[in-house]
Design a protein around this nucleic acid. Structure first.
Lengths: 335, 335
DNA sequence: TTGAAAGCGCTAACAT
DNA sequence: ATGTTAGCGCTTTCAA
């Protein structure tokens, strides 16, 4: 179907024009179905395109301009190891599907400097929008984003000021709501088990919100265990075991997220600790497995896919927006 | 820091040249640190770049460039909902980091037609390589990939012929090894609980490999439960419950992956079914949580990050390669 | 309806 | 060491 091509040189629009016996502009018109052309021209071009296996070069297309955008969306997420960010991308790509837009994704590993470098790199592709995670960035990142002139959407977190458009929920409030839930259930000797809140600033905000709500009740964490590295069930299990060894009288533990909480639940199961009778467990995110557990995990469900979808919807909008998609406290059986 | 820009027009290299009082080619030389230029020219250009907030346009750069690639890598994965594919991307982006390459990712949702459309779209960005998942594609996808002239790497699966370069492991053999493990442990009334093997062809190959090994021992599945939709703990739990209700005498269940197996384990816990005493459970992938469980899950660890890394390493290579990274059977406590 | 020509922002000769 | 020039592949006037 595809003719032999001298290696290293792809079929160009000029090749198609020659093969079809028409001018380049006619090929362009046919391909973009823009302007008018004869039926015959249309057929000959279509035939030549198929025969030569022509794939348009969008780089050239964009450069030639005429207001047509690149169709690229630059996205920076902090991690791929935590399913919440793939979930975000899932919502985003689902919404982008069919619009002719493509996302180009960079992963910052929770490093603001790396984020800045990624933003610079992504902008060199002249994306039509820039999607970042969270509200905290290097000053350089902010200048770059501003100067780019494109729509900037900051996802997930609404606790603070955004550059342009913000889509997410209040992590601080989610933490506070979790605390109020535990307090309402009568728990008083509460511990915290989490991964690094300095790197994962949203986890830090939840922690701060939780503490603020505790303080309102005249309480504070009875003990806390911060684990280095990323969150995981293994880390949650080890963290919980360390915590409970240090503070055996805890009656509840708040985890930085569901993965950590799952690890804590595993630890209880292994040690024969009754949940929530002896100790209550509370997570965050509302991951898939949470409600398949024999005791559904008590947690806060976050609108991850919805944030991705809403962010995509904001791309076309003209004015800055602020969308709070909220969260849902799930009264499971562990707290 | 950044001067006012008439909206809609970004700073170009020509603007920088004018501001720095040098020629365009000098700016180009300075920016790319290629060719020679005076110290003074370098300083003036650097100053102008900073002052104007100039971000190079790589689209134009590539178009002009004699042989300089786009630095883009087109990637197609079937899903973002299953952590194994983000893991793959994680290995890939980690290896790409610092090389100046960026991946552009498309998600096919296990649909070959969508995959073909994505490949066409990605090729229009003139990537320097194309990374696909699995070995089964539409004929159109294969022609496109071939005609592109770029390195094509098919990831994860080595059971079959590839277009160009293949990096993965044998899913078929992984399934067979799992069966042999269960047989060696004395299990004979084995059931299967999985998600759609027609969509997830790798799961289908594992299933086929497992069955072939059973057949060698003169056995077959005593029962099987195929669940529609994607894999999850909830699906695994429901599937397991249906399976065990239909075939109460099973002594082991092979799951399509760890998420499903976790659901099965939850079901056993909820129903007070002893594992592996009463029934053994076997998964696939070796996910994070597997060894944090009170009873570590018996499963097969797959080299997901390594595949991503190895795929990145293949990008530069000249000749087609075939890399089998193998897998590791993990003798957990559930089988 | 169609082709010729200009130019998008950049790089790589080629001069100087 | 540096400016000038000619494209890269495409889209869009503008004539014809």
């Amino acid at each position: 179907m595809t003719e032999f091509q001298p290696p290293g040189r792809l079929v160009t629009l000029a090749d198609v024009a020659r093969a079809a016996g028409v001018g380049e502009s006619t090929v362009s018109r046919v391909l973009r179905n823009h302007g008018s052309y004869s039926k015959r021209a249309g057929e000959r071009v279509a035939e030549a395109v198929a025969r030569l296996g022509y794939v348009p070069n969008r780089l050239a297309g964009h450069l030639a301009g005429g207001g047509m955008g690149t169709g690229l969306v630059g996205v920076v997420i902090p991690s791929l190891a935590n399913i919440v960010f793939p979930d975000l991308l899932r919502g985003l790509t689902a919404a982008l599907d069919g619009t002719g837009m493509q996302s180009v994704v960079g992963v910052s590993e929770y490093d603001p400097d790396r984020e800045e470098a990624l933003v610079a790199a992504l902008l060199s592709w002249r994306p039509e929008a820039l999607l970042l995670t969270g509200l905290e960035h290097n000053p350089g990142t902010v200048s770059l984003a501003r100067a780019s002139g494109v729509r900037v959407v900051e996802m997930i977190d609404t606790d603070g000021e955004g550059i342009d458009t913000v889509v997410g929920f209040s992590n601080r409030e989610a933490g506070a709501a979790s605390a109020r839930h535990l307090l309402a259930r009568g728990y008083r000797r509460i511990g915290y088990c989490g991964h690094d809140p300095e790197a994962d600033l949203r986890a830090g905000k939840r922690l701060a919100g939780f503490e603020a709500a505790l303080a309102q009740a005249g309480l504070a964490f009875a003990a806390r265990e911060i684990r280095p590295g990323r969150s995981s069930a293994a880390s949650g299990r080890a963290g919980f075991e360390a915590l409970i060894a240090r503070a055996p009288d805890l009656d509840a533990v708040y985890f930085s997220n569901d993965d950590m909480a799952l690890g804590g639940w595993f630890a209880c199961l292994a040690a024969g600790i009754s949940v929530p009778g002896r100790i209550a467990l509370f997570g965050f995110n509302g991951l898939d497995f949470a409600d398949a557990m024999p005791q559904p995990l008590s947690t806060v469900r976050t609108p991850r896919l919805e944030i991705g979808r809403a962010a995509a919807a904001c791309l076309t909008g003209r004015d800055p927006t602020r969308i709070d998609l909220g969260f849902t406290l799930i009264e499971g059986a562990t707290a």
